[in-house]
Structure formats: structure tokens, C-alpha cells
């Protein structure tokens, strides 16, 4: 429950403070956010299956974000940043979709 509240608090904070995105982080932020969302949906699914684990969540969250940023960075260095970003977004999007589908099946049985 607290993580959900945390998400709400974060959104409110963001709306209130409306922080400027630092320039150096700007290319990585979108991918990092999507990677984090993937981790969050995975966590919700794990909770419903009764196998949620705080430690695993924290580690997967951080590693997701770091790996996503790393891929974007690597892509930019190789000159295929746009394509690689698209690929990462597609993969993460697929995972989010499948996680949501599982959550839906768990909750609604359909």
C-alpha cells in the first residue's frame, strides 16, 4: 500500500514542484520511466500471486532503470540511439502489456 501512496505522492510532488529535467538526464528519462513502470507492473503481478518481495522489487526497479539508461547511452554512442530507444520501448511495452494481462486474469478470472 505504501508504494502506491508513494506513487501518488510523487505525482503530486511533480505537479507542485514541476521540476526541470536536467539536460544530461533528458535523453534517458523517458526510457527510464518506462522501465520503472515495467518493474511496478511486475511487482503488482507478483503481489497478486503472493510472491512479492521488497528486495527483489527494489533491485529490479533500479536495474531496469540503469539498464534502460545504459542502452540509450550505448545507442547514442553508436549513432543508433533513436532506433535502439524505439526497440527498448517496444520490448518494455510488450512486457507491461503481458503483465497487465496476467493481472487482469488474476483479478477478474478472464
Amino acid at each position: 500500500m505504501i508504494p502506491v501512496l508513494g506513487l501518488v505522492v510523487g505525482i503530486v510532488l511533480g505537479l507542485v514542484l514541476s521540476p526541470e529535467v536536467p539536460v544530461w538526464i533528458a535523453p534517458y528519462l523517458p526510457i527510464a520511466v518506462i522501465a520503472a513502470l515495467d518493474a511496478v507492473f511486475g511487482a503488482v503481478r507478483a503481489s497478486l500471486e503472493g510472491i512479492f518481495n521488497d528486495r527483489v522489487f527494489v533491485i529490479s526497479f533500479l536495474s531496469n532503470v540503469v539498464v534502460a539508461a545504459l542502452i540509450v547511452f550505448l545507442g547514442n554512442q553508436l549513432g543508433v540511439g533513436a532506433q535502439l530507444s524505439t526497440g527498448v520501448v517496444v520490448v518494455l511495452g510488450l512486457r507491461i502489456f503481458s503483465n497487465v494481462a496476467v493481472i487482469r486474469r488474476h483479478l477478474l478470472g478472464a
Binding site: 508504494p3 502506491v4 508513494g6 506513487l7 501518488v8 505522492v9 510523487g10 505525482i11 503530486v12 510532488l13 511533480g14 505537479l15 514542484l17 514541476s18 521540476p19 526541470e20 529535467v21 528519462l29 523517458p30 527510464a32 520511466v33 520503472a36 513502470l37 511496478v40 522489487f57 527494489v58 526497479f61 533500479l62
Partner: peptide
């Protein structure tokens, strides 16, 4: 982490 995510989401 989720607080951070929320802030980042809104900022993005």
C-alpha cells in the same frame, strides 16, 4: 522508488 517514479513521470 515509486515517489521518484511519480516525480520523474510528471517531469517527463
Amino acid at each position: 522508488l515509486t515517489v521518484l517514479l511519480g516525480v520523474a513521470l510528471v517531469a517527463q
